[in-house]
């Protein structure tokens, strides 16, 4: 039997961050209610594939399964699926109102609320890569999903394996025209590890990376970086246009900085490494909660302390700024402990 503390914490969002915070708090004896918009928990992380080749590459994708298990089985955790927040009131306790997809209204009271509503993957339709028109231009998240569900890599146009694959990095990140000045942190590790996985599954696959600079991908980055340049063709230029030719081939225009030539090259599959953007609902949610967003639309947490501008309301994970799975896990844990600190001292 778990220890019970007569204090309640509501977590908005059942992704990796929310589930981690929930499991920490539940283990410490707090009662936790997770309000999740969709019909399942696990968020984006549950759709990411394991990227192990001959050994684990520590991508973190498997971590979410364990958290889902805890959330479903722990006596202190109660999950409200398919529910959206409709309002919040600050009285003696914080009252949170929500309704489910059948429009049934409910409410819960809590001593603290954690916003763990996650991110929105960048939609690359506005970029000159024909994402909405060409079948074989896909996003990195779509590739994750394909590998996770089918354990293989196929061209969407005819479901045959692609021979020549291009990854385009930084799509929707580091882009002042979109007011996205941040590095999304997840796209380099995810795409590079998937590329290694593709080469393991499909030896001889010809993979090119169009990039600006590769971001750090964990502790063994230095070794990882040498293999990147050895195993893949790396082109330090972002392509200008992608056009579709016969048989759904893709003609990629780019400037090759090595021989100073403008080139058009044919690829079978183009993967756009899309970045993290703030959730579209952040504005509305911040207004309902009476808290601030950063200038870019993420939740403002006083220099990443987890505290928002309102007592008792915390924010964690990619709701605050871009981060990968490892960082989301630690953000969930840290914020859970901040909540405990607050409940012990403040209330």
């Amino acid at each position: 039997m778990e220890r019970m503390i007569d204090q309640n914490v509501i977590i908005l969002g059942g992704g990796i961050t929310g589930l981690t915070a929930a499991s920490e708090l539940a283990h410490l004896g707090y009662h936790v209610e997770i309000i999740e918009k969709s019909e399942s928990i696990g968020g984006h992380a549950v759709r990411l594939t394991c990227k192990a080749t001959e050994k684990c590459v520590k991508c973190g994708a498997c971590k979410v399964d364990e958290k889902i298990q805890i959330a479903h089985s722990h006596i202190n955790i109660n999950i409200h699926m398919g529910c959206t927040l409709t309002g919040i009131k600050n009285g003696e306790r914080i009252s949170v109102y929500y309704r489910n997809q059948q429009d049934r209204k409910s409410s819960s009271n809590a001593e603290a609320v954690i916003i763990a509503t996650g991110f929105h993957p960048f939609n690359p339709e506005t970029k000159p890569y024909g994402y909405d028109r060409f079948k074989n231009v896909i996003t990195s998240l779509e590739l994750e999903k394909r590998i996770k569900e089918h354990n293989d890599i196929k061209k969407p146009s005819d479901l045959t394996p692609p021979e020549k694959i291009a990854f385009v990095q930084c799509v929707g990140s580091r882009d002042s025209s979109l007011n996205h000045l941040w590095c999304s942190k997840i796209c380099c590790p995810s795409s590079l590890r998937m590329a290694h996985l593709i080469q393991t599954k499909q030896p001889g696959a010809d993979i090119s990376f169009f990039y600006i600079d590769f971001q750090n991908c964990g502790k063994d980055y230095q070794q990882f970086q040498t293999t990147i340049h050895k195993n893949f063709r790396t082109i330090r230029a972002i392509p200008g246009d992608i056009l579709q030719t016969k048989n759904n081939h893709l003609e990629v225009s780019f400037f090759d900085p090595v021989d100073h030539k403008a080139k058009e090259e044919i690829f079978d599959l183009v993967v756009l490494s899309v970045g993290i953007t703030p959730n579209q609902g952040n504005r509305d949610l911040s207004e309902k909660l009476g808290i601030n967003l950063t200038e870019f639309g993420f939740f403002d947490t006083h220099n990443q302390t987890g505290m928002t501008s309102k007592a008792g309301i915390f924010a964690a994970g990619t709701a605050c700024h871009p981060m990968g799975i490892e960082e989301s896990l630690s953000s969930g844990i840290k914020t859970a402990f901040r909540v405990v600190e607050y409940l012990k001292n403040g209330k």
Binding site: R174, I212, A262
Partner: peptide
């Protein structure tokens, strides 16, 4: 000074490569 040298300019430029010119 805020150029990140991403080279999308050079990849899009219709005269990139002429006499080794490119906008980046």
């Amino acid at each position: 000074d805020i150029c990140m040298t991403c080279s999308i300019c050079s990849s899009s430029c219709p005269v990139s490569g002429v006499d080794d010119f490119d906008p980046r």
